[in-house]
Write a protein that binds this DNA or RNA. Structure first.
Lengths: 138, 138
DNA sequence: AAAATTAGTTACCAATGATAACTGTTATCA
DNA sequence: TGATAACAGTTATCATTGGTAACTAATTTT
């Protein structure tokens, strides 16, 4: 419930670069974990594969990502193109400014605590009810 | 980005009661701020009016909310029906259990801090870029 | 009384996600 | 080794949730 205004505003910021949130999330991940498979992205985002297929397809058409083949012919490893890297930098500026703005008046320490708590919560969620992580039930 | 698993899991929990998130949010608000207008709900959720009209319509058909007319014939004040109140209680149990689970291992104090930070962030967001709150620029 | 504002609706469309059923590819194992 | 299982990705289709534009009816402003 707390994320609606957040997402709304983020979309506005991304709109300046004609990007959508789902696309940005993938670019963001690739910048940090270059070449990644679709399954990797799927797990990271907690989203089904077809959704990733679609979004990656868009980014490919836009020229922001390309795929490099590895040994395993099944998987499609994706990486950022030059244009993609440039876009990341550009968006980063916008998003950074946005972050500074929404974090106004919050102490460094409280923020750290909040981030840690959020992370713990995420771990709790993904480790239990989802049945996706670590529960290898043949 | 941090809320995807959260929403996913919440939807699973709500699914047990054949509810969706958007519907639950409205029921939740009504339980606390009985009779509320659609505009009120719209502002609270940071969502446009047509979206609210639709969801409230669903809840009305399901028999969870009903509208009481006030003086102003334009507005449609909604309140929970008996069935709606009952549903709230039932879902509350599910959601409470869920909350306990995802907050495992987080100290009372850290949680308080995190909540405060989140709230501050929300205030920062709604007070600036949206141009919706308090900026009466004729 | 006319004009502007407000609450809500209708009719669209877009973004994001899910499922089911499928094709190739690689691993397993009997 | 050959059948079978598991895995990565795709296609097609649907549902949820959101948005815009254009409208009606009721209420305020001027």
């Amino acid at each position: 419930m707390l994320y609606r205004p957040f997402e709304k505003r983020l979309n506005t910021e991304l709109g300046k670069h004609e990007l959508h949130r789902a696309q940005w999330t993938i670019i963001y991940y690739l910048e940090n974990f270059n070449p990644a498979t679709l399954v990797e992205l799927s797990n990271y985002q907690g989203v089904e594969k077809p959704t990733i297929t679609r979004t990656v397809g868009q980014l490919e058409e836009l020229g922001y990502v390309e795929h490099v083949r590895g040994k395993d012919k099944r998987e499609k490893r994706m990486q950022l193109t030059e244009a993609g890297k440039q876009l990341y930098q550009d968006v980063r500026e916008t998003v950074d400014a946005y972050e500074v703005e929404i974090l106004r008046g919050i102490s460094e320490e409280d923020l750290k605590t909040a981030i840690r708590v959020m992370d713990d919560i995420r771990k709790n969620i993904t480790q239990s009810g989802d049945g996706e992580v670590g529960t290898s039930e043949t």
